[in-house]
C-alpha cells in the first residue's frame, strides 16, 4: 500500500527526471537554465522528504546561486537577442511575469511582517530536530570525512586556477587580440 510519503517521492522523482531531460532537450539556453533550477528544487524537495533539512537548504541556496551564474554566463557567451525576444513576448508570459513578481513581493512583505513578531519574541529554548540533523552532519563531515572535505578544497582551487588559465591562453587565432 502506498503511503503519502511514497506519493511525494514519486512525484518529486518524476519532476526531477522530466525537468532533467528538459534541461538537455530545451533549444533555448535560458529555458535550459530554468529547467535546471526546477531540477534542483525537486532534489531539494526529496531531501526535505528525507528530513534532511540542512542539505535541502544548502541545495537551494548553493544551486540557486549556481543557476544565477549560469544565467550570467549564458547571456555573456551567446548572442541571445532572438531567444530573449521569444521568451518575453505574449500575454500569457506577461501574466506569468506579473504573477511571479507579485508572489515574490508577497513573500518578502509577508516575511518582513511576520518576522517582526519573532525577532522581538524571546528565543525558543528547545533545539528541534533540524538542529540535531545539522549537528550530526557537521560532526560526520569534520571528523569521519575530513580528508575528503579537505581534498575538495584542493579541487576547487584547481578549478579556479584552471578556468583562469584557459581563459588566458594566447597564441594562434587569439594572437591577433594582443
Amino acid at each position: 500500500m502506498l503511503e503519502l510519503a511514497d506519493y511525494t517521492f514519486y512525484f518529486l522523482a518524476a519532476l526531477v527526471l522530466i525537468s532533467g531531460i528538459a534541461v538537455i532537450t530545451a533549444q533555448n539556453p535560458i529555458f535550459s537554465a530554468l529547467w535546471l533550477a526546477l531540477t534542483m528544487i525537486g532534489v531539494a524537495g526529496i531531501f526535505v522528504s528525507l528530513d534532511a533539512w540542512f542539505v535541502a537548504g544548502v541545495q537551494l541556496i548553493v544551486y540557486a546561486g549556481a543557476v544565477m551564474v549560469l544565467f550570467v554566463m549564458v547571456i555573456m557567451l551567446f548572442d541571445l537577442r532572438h531567444e530573449i525576444h521569444a521568451f518575453s513576448r505574449g500575454i500569457l508570459s506577461g501574466f506569468l511575469k506579473l504573477a511571479s513578481a507579485g508572489i515574490v513581493l508577497g513573500l518578502i512583505v509577508g516575511t518582513v511582517y511576520r518576522s517582526a513578531e519573532t525577532v522581538f519574541a524571546p528565543p525558543p529554548v528547545e533545539t528541534d530536530k533540524m538542529a540535531d540533523v545539522t549537528k550530526a552532519l557537521a560532526n560526520t563531515l569534520f571528523t569521519k570525512y575530513i580528508f575528503s572535505f579537505e581534498v575538495i578544497g584542493v579541487l576547487l582551487l584547481v578549478i579556479a586556477i584552471g578556468a583562469v588559465t584557459l581563459s588566458r591562453i594566447r597564441g594562434g587565432t587569439h594572437a591577433s587580440h594582443d
Binding site: V151, L155, V158, G162, T165, L166, I169, G172, A175
Partner: peptide, 18 residues
C-alpha cells in the same frame, strides 16, 4: 581522487595554445 586527477587533465589537454 578521480575527479581531481581528471579535472586537471581536461585543462592540460586544452593547453596546447591554439
Amino acid at each position: 581522487g578521480i575527479e581531481t586527477m581528471s579535472l586537471c587533465l581536461y585543462i592540460l589537454c586544452a593547453m596546447s595554445k591554439e
